[in-house]
Design a protein around this nucleic acid. Structure first.
Lengths: 217, 217
DNA sequence: CAGCAAAATTGAACATCGTTCATTTTTGGC
DNA sequence: GCCAAAAATGAACGATGTTCAATTTTGCTG
């Protein structure tokens, strides 16, 4: 820690190049995940696609899992843009329906990248997984905002819990359908199924709030 | 195909031994999955646990994936017994709630075996994956039966589709919570969260059926 | 019981994987 | 142009799933 900075801004130009390598690797990793799936993300093919040596991957990232996580972060950003677009101009139950269908559409249109979001298991939970949770929290706030407009009679922390529940429920429907390991819905029926499901949820919530305001028993 | 059966029942005693090996391997595979997870199912450690040679695995099964699938089939049988027990003596919404909570409990208590049910990706979709779908279909019939008792006004094929949707929704809530990659519920809140969710669903369905029978608008 | 062909078992060997690290090449201020 | 520090390189390592030639076991036969 004593002789580190004896030269001025040596690190500046260097870090630009190394940052460029990092981005090149993340992009290459994302492309491979999106085209051949997470299991197709091999170190040697990745190095070829990013035009770097095998060992350079490990000077830019701790391991392939960390790199895959950054690629997933990119997918999560794409998902967020889709969901934000689906919500603009809509409120309440209408917004919830649109969000659910947009999620299903994103999963279908970006199948492999979407699958990788849930297939990746990190051996050593990484520092950047905090970014991952942050990104997901932002998605959840889209749901929370829509729920507030229903309006449902719950405390703020209940609202947050319900947002997580409804996101997870829609995700489960999409997941079981697309993974094809269990008995799910055919992809072409998925959006309609989710639309009906979210409608049922929203109606149930509205009825709950209504009966709470006017309990006629 | 001409000289195959020139001896009487040679295959009988032989097939008994080979069947015993298959069962020994499936049991050993299940134990390893249940204790160290699907990724801990390695050929060499499996051979050690089953007291057989490395190559014997491949005379009993096509590959490790097929073996893991039979271990998963065993887990699915355990899950089915849990769910059947949870449903006995209950009907309608009460049965649905009990099923959902039992599913969450099974996932928590058999975490690694339950995760393996969804983590396994088959390279070559196997013949026995039909058994897998059959087992899942039987689980779904538990839900369908409960739904019929609500009663909800839908056609039989709609009832089947709704069963799949509700199973997938509950699975999603459990999955997101336990995998811990996204923002889910803490395990100790999971059952309560699912109970409330299933109640909401059942109430929504009952309201739907009620308003259909007496449309006072 | 001995003979023997077929079946089952074995584990060394192979290809491929993620990862490491000694060596080489590049970099940028003096 | 020099040179120390940084970056890039790819051969090598250990572990993986899978194969297969060699060996052992099996169970009927004369």
């Amino acid at each position: 820690m004593n002789t580190v900075q004896k030269r001025g801004d040596v690190t500046e130009k260097r870090s630009k190049k190394s940052q460029a390598l990092r981005e090149r690797l993340i992009d290459a990793a994302w492309r491979r995940i999106a085209t051949v799936g997470l299991s197709g993300l091999t170190a040697r093919e990745l190095a070829a696609e990013a035009n770097c040596a095998l060992g350079s991957i490990y000077s830019a990232f701790d391991d392939l899992d960390q790199l895959a996580m950054y690629a997933n972060l990119k997918s999560l950003g794409m998902l967020e843009r889709c969901l934000v677009a689906a919500k603009t101009g809509r409120t309440g139950a209408d917004a919830l329906r649109s969000l659910g269908c947009a999620y299903a559409r994103f999963a279908i249109e970006n199948r492999l990248a979407w699958e990788a979001l849930f297939d990746l298991r990190l051996l050593h939970p990484q520092p950047a997984s905090a970014d991952f949770v942050d990104a997901h929290s932002h998605l959840l706030s889209l749901i929370t905002d829509a729920l507030r407009e229903i309006p449902v009679d719950t405390t703020p922390q209940d609202l947050s819990a319900r947002s997580r529940t409804y996101f997870a429920a829609v995700h489960g429907i999409v997941s079981i359908s697309l993974q094809g390991r269990f008995v799910g819905h055919p992809p072409e029926r998925l959006e309609a199924e989710i639309d009906a499901f979210v409608t049922l949820l929203a109606d149930g919530l509205a009825a709950e709030a209504g009966s709470a305001r006017s309990p006629q028993q």
